[in-house]
């Protein structure tokens, strides 16, 4: 298998993000739920890591800890950055605001950072053009289709040029065709940006197409039980879906996942 990136080793100073025996427990004793871990994970700068796992395995919990929305119960998660807020997150239900126009939504992160209005508008318009949304800049999100709304969410997250991009099943609410189209768009985009990304999905295809690494998580409490590096050199395109290696890897991952997803 061709390794596009060197394997990260323990204590790698190159790590962008490192989780050490990270766990999360919800509720108070005696009624507690072990949601996550322990998870050890290292992500190198510019790496695109996909997490797949059965529902409720704590994938989202891990992402929310990385985003700073939730604290771990034990362990630590380190992000190597000089910024206070290095991460942006894209949610499954878009998380964009109905009361802001498309342009204002994309500008939101810049407004929060108090970027001057003129510059913020220019950067927002640039992103709208990249996502093919220029004609809808002044429209309200309610008038857009699901795919366009998710493009707005992606533009909003990337407009602030984050060091870390967190995506929580971003395409789960889209139909299959649209999903493939947006996967290809995101592939193009991330290969030119090289933003360090943690991407959660239920779709094995999605994980293999997009990821430098695919991590398979166990049923709750989620631990990383397998790690695969899709053998497709970058820059790659969506055409790899038709290759036998793709099918073989998907079958292998599915065999792993089925054991976890099916109740024992």
């Amino acid at each position: 298998m061709g390794d596009p990136h060197p394997k990260p080793t323990a204590g790698n100073p190159q790590a962008k993000l490192r989780a050490t025996t990270l766990t999360r427990i919800f509720g108070r004793p005696p009624r507690t739920v072990d949601a996550l871990g322990p998870v050890d994970l290292t992500v190198t700068p510019g790496e695109f890591v996909c997490l797949v796992g059965p529902s409720g395995c704590g994938k989202s919990t891990l992402l929310r800890i990385a985003a700073g929305l939730l604290r771990p119960s034990t362990g630590t998660l380190e992000i190597h950055t000089s910024s206070r807020r290095p991460a942006t997150m894209i949610f499954q239900d878009y998380g964009i605001y109905d009361w802001k126009t498309v342009r204002a939504n994309v500008r939101f992160g810049l407004d929060i950072q108090r970027v001057p209005r003129r510059e913020a508008n220019a950067r927002a318009d640039d992103w709208l053009a990249r996502m093919g949304l220029s004609d809808f800049a002044d429209a309200y999100p309610a008038t857009l289709s699901g795919g366009m709304r998710q493009r707005v969410a992606i533009a909003r997250a990337l407009a602030v040029e984050p060091e870390l991009l967190l995506m929580d099943e971003p395409f789960a609410a889209l139909d299959a065709q649209l999903r493939t189209i947006l996967q290809d768009e995101l592939l193009d985009l991330t290969q030119s940006l090289r933003t360090t990304t943690l991407f959660i999905t239920h779709s094995l295809e999605e994980a293999i197409v997009l990821g430098d690494r695919v991590l398979v998580m166990s049923a709750r409490p989620g631990r990383v039980i397998a790690e695969h590096r899709p053998p497709f050199p970058r820059p790659r395109t969506g055409d790899i879906r038709a290759t036998p290696e793709f099918t073989a890897l998907r079958t292998e991952l599915w065999d792993l996942l089925r054991k976890e997803a099916a109740p024992a």
Partner: peptide
């Protein structure tokens, strides 16, 4: 909900358990 920053020289942002996670029963009480 807060994030703790070490001094900028180290430039590592650490997400670690807070009092609520370390002593859930006591904090709740």
């Amino acid at each position: 909900m807060t994030t703790l920053t070490k001094p900028p020289a180290d430039s590592v942002l650490v997400r670690r358990p807070g009092p609520r996670e370390l002593h859930p029963a006591r904090t709740h009480r």
